[in-house]
Structure formats: structure tokens, C-alpha cells
């Protein structure tokens, strides 16, 4: 069946089987491999993408269900003027070790700070509670999301 999904601002029209999962469509048909497949059972959040701005687990959405929607993957975070604040904050605060969960963590973080530029520790931990990290112990992930939020708040105050 024909699906038309806008991924990181570009339209992708493709003929997919109904059983094609959104994550496989993004990785295999479109060729964007920044979205990872971890547990493949809706637990770990490595496959997180934003669907019309809302974080979802792309291993548990059919590509056909995303027809007509706007999807943002980790590749879509970077803007014309450089890295997204969440990306620079993860770099500066060492918010990753192996990097496998990082795309999902950054997308959830970006979605959180779009609504809340002063999230508490608890608010950040609540927001990322559907995403698993086996390396960092989460401390620097929480810190990085808060750093990014503070920088976004600062730049919007300054402008």
C-alpha cells in the first residue's frame, strides 16, 4: 500500500506491506539508521521517533499508521545553524556512553523541553521513564536534558 510520510521535512512516498513497522520503514526503505532497534518489544525506547511532535516507539507503530504524518528522527534534530541544543548538551555533559539509547533519549528530551524549559529532576526522569540506558546510570542524561532546557530558556529570553 502507498504511504506518504514526511521524515525530517522531506516527503517519502513508498509502497509498503501493511505489516511493515515504522522503524523498519525508516531504517530500511528510507535508509536512516539513527533510529535503533533494541528490545523490539515496546520496552526499551531505542526506536523512539517523534510522530507529529509526540514521542512514540516506532517498533510498535505500523508505517501505514504514520501515513500523512510528520516524523522526526535523530537525524532531523540538527538544524541549519548547527546541532540542536539537546545534542550539544549531551556532548558537553557526557550524556552517553555506548550511544545506543541516545537517539531516543535526545528525542524525548527535545520533546520535553519544547514544553518545559525548566524541568525538575523528577520531571526529566518521568519523561525518560520509557527509555532504558544500560551504561550511564541516567545521571548525566538527566543533567544534559536540564542543560539543554536552560540554554533554550536563556536564548529565548535573550532574543
Amino acid at each position: 500500500m502507498e504511504v506518504n510520510i514526511t521524515i525530517n521535512g522531506s516527503e517519502h512516498a513508498s509502497d509498503v506491506e501493511p505489516r511493515t513497522l515504522l522503524v523498519d520503514h525508516i531504517r530500511r526503505t528510507v535508509g536512516l539508521t539513527g533510529t535503533h532497534v533494541g528490545c523490539d518489544t515496546t520496552s526499551c525506547g531505542a526506536c523512539t521517533v517523534l510522530m507529529d511532535g509526540t514521542p512514540v516507539k516506532a517498533c510498535t507503530v505500523l508505517a501505514a499508521q504514520a501515513d500523512g504524518s510528520e516524523v522526526t528522527t535523530v537525524e532531523g534534530l540538527k538544524g541549519a545553524d548547527g546541532l540542536h541544543p539537546i545534542q550539544s548538551a549531551f556532548t558537553d555533559d557526557h550524556g552517553l556512553q555506548c550511544g545506543f539509547c541516545t537517539p531516543g533519549m535526545m528525542l524525548v528530551g527535545a520533546s520535553l523541553i519544547a514544553e518545559n524549559t525548566d524541568p525538575s529532576d523528577d520531571e526529566v526522569r518521568w519523561a525518560i521513564s520509557g527509555n532504558l540506558c544500560r551504561c550511564t546510570g541516567y545521571i548525566n542524561i538527566v543533567k544534559a536534558i536540564q542543560t539543554a532546557a536552560a540554554r533554550v530558556a536563556e536564548s529565548s529570553n535573550g532574543s
Partner: peptide, 9 residues
């Protein structure tokens, strides 16, 4: 119920 991402769908 579930986790935040599952609750979104």
C-alpha cells in the same frame, strides 16, 4: 499505565 511513550499511542 505502561510508560510515557506507550501512553502516547
Amino acid at each position: 499505565v505502561a510508560d510515557p511513550l506507550v501512553r502516547n499511542r
